[in-house]
Design a protein around this nucleic acid. Structure first.
Lengths: 211, 211, 211, 211
DNA sequence: GATGAATGAGTATTCATTCAT
DNA sequence: GATGAATGAATACTCATTCAT
């Protein structure tokens, strides 16, 4: 009799986890609140004890995940021993592993928020821009140190880099790319190689002078 | 001898043009059929003389535009005097000019179809893949001729290239990039430079042998 | 160049005939005005040159047919050489032959008008009652002459008689009775035999005294 | 200790009862779902908690009533002490009393289903035929025992019998027959007398041999 | 906390009818 | 006469949200 069967926090999490599966499967606009409740095994009225609205469920899911990602980017940036390319590789790895670990959640984050210019994307524009900004800072430092070319703006480079990752995730979401551990690792390499190395053939860049 | 006031084809176009504006402004899911009709200045019943449903209006808009783009890509590919990089530059230029010329239409194509994994994106997956495939062919030839590195698959390279363009368009759609003629031209260069040249600093590639 | 290709009366008839087929196939409420026009091979706007409304088409079809039937009943009644049973047999034969000759029309008359208590049946109640009344008169005379029993009212007898015929037609309409010439003739006999002779087993009635 | 204000079953019944009144008054096709809800004193959305569609409301009403009738017919048939005529009289009495007790419901059953050859009649053809079949069995036994003439098929006799009853109900529905207890009882007798005794005048059938 | 009955705003679609050509 | 584009009234149904129990 010591522990309650289900704590409030657990119930809330139970609903959020169900919502991820339902949003990923049916899409935010197409699913019903009762679909989420069914998936969670609770009455649909209960959802309104934990969230103000259906929108708030998606907002919560997005921000939970996005904040982790932004924090990771900032932590990576703080590791001064890494080159810019290594930092970008770390970020790529983290995001792709996030998808590998919970594809439903990442699908929801991207499809329902990040790319929804008329609805949630607009709402969370600040959060999205924060991520771009953090990446841009990494690139800016790489440019300053001479590691990266400064022929484009760091902001645009950040957008392209993040866009390449998102495009890869989209490939998985649309079943255009193969899944499987090797595939995930291969694509990680592709992303960094393409963005940093470019498509053009040419001799490998000179190793940094004094190293 | 006066011309007929409005032909059937003109009315149809009138409705499609109105739909573009309304979809861009409010989003497909958020707007009402009557909003389109109001914007077009016709009774909403008339929409059903020209289209089977609201969905069909969006499908029509998307395919009209997408087919033009796929055709352009194939035409570019056929110009054997161009290098792969020049072909990619031509495609980039065309798509960005498309946005510059009719931002509402491109916004609808991207936001409501291309990136809508749970609804129209899934429907038009074949059309979308046809575009990727055509770009991949260009890249494949570039790899075969030695112009491009073949360390990644042409398919992935195509996705990343197209993703970079779409990300730029998204930047304009979200008001994250400045508009204006110079900006458009600058971004064109950024896209090709980033994708082909990469972010890494290094000596310019050796000039082709016999030139 | 002497005759117009199609006279107004012919066009009108063409539309009415098409309407019969469409009403029979789809039902009055379920079919569209354009279905009738398509079946007739004319533009749907033309229907409104010949009829005030969709309702009027059905009204016209019903009254055309019903008036013929009422007139037939009255003509039969006038033939004083016939017994009541012979008169009823003649009416039965006429109605069943009407169905045999044009099942669609009779289906429409019965299903869409005669039995539609909430719509057209109420509208044409007078016409319907005129038929009952004429049949009742035949029965009344049969009762007066001693040919028929007068234990029930002529009005009720007329309803039951007509109801038996309509029930037979309904059997054909619902595919519950076999079609084919013999079947039609057999049912004619059944109707008169059942209504006049009853279901009870017993000796044939005595022949009329002085005959 | 107060009882719950309204149970789910009661609400459902409340809606069904309201639907009967509305269907009888306005007809199924002519009434709106909100008319039913208004009559029941509930929000129209609630109707969709208890029924999948407007159609299902009518289906439910019909089957509820029709199943009771078929069961009654079978129970009557099982009473071996009754003659066929007595069985038919019992069925007639039951159906006419059903109308007397709830004319709206019987009107809906007949007008909107039983006689609606293009819509619900077709849907419920099996149920309708089950009733005919049970009546035909009664008649068949009567023929086998020599009580009834076997000059027509039991199936046709059943149709005519049921048709006579339905015609009587139609007479009330169309206000062509007087209402009032005596009238109901009189018509009961008329139906059985007409169907069993026939219209022809003749001596009463011989009493069964050994009685 | 938990339930699900109750509410009613919101919308795509149909189709009879009109009328300019 | 003939056409079919144009109109807009009419309606079933969905579903987020509330709230009594």
């Amino acid at each position: 009799m010591a522990t309650a069967r289900t704590t409030a926090a657990e119930r809330r999490r139970q609903i959020l986890d169900a919502a991820v599966r339902v949003f990923a499967r049916q899409g935010f606009h197409t699913c019903r609140v009762s679909d989420i409740a069914d998936e969670a095994g609770v009455a649909y009225g209960l959802l309104y004890h934990y969230f103000r609205s259906k929108d708030e469920v998606l907002d919560t899911l997005f921000l939970e995940r996005w904040d982790v990602m932004v924090e990771l980017i900032e932590q990576v940036d703080a590791r001064t021993e890494l080159t810019a390319r290594e930092k970008l590789a770390a970020i790529t790895s983290f995001i792709i592993d996030s998808y590998r670990h919970d594809p439903d959640l990442m699908k929801v984050v991207i499809v329902e928020v990040t790319r929804a210019a008329n609805t949630f994307g607009r709402t969370h524009l600040d959060a999205i821009n924060r991520a771009y900004g953090s990446i841009a800072k990494i690139i800016e430092k790489g440019m300053a140190s001479g590691e990266l070319r400064d022929t484009i703006t760091p902001q645009f480079a950040a957008m392209t880099f993040y866009g390449a990752i998102e495009q890869a995730l989209t490939g998985w979401i649309f079943d255009m790319l193969p899944t499987g551990d090797e595939s995930f690792e291969q694509i990680k390499g592709f992303v960094v190689d393409t963005i940093c190395g470019g498509l053009d053939a040419r001799p490998a860049p000179d190793p940094p002078a004094g190293v």
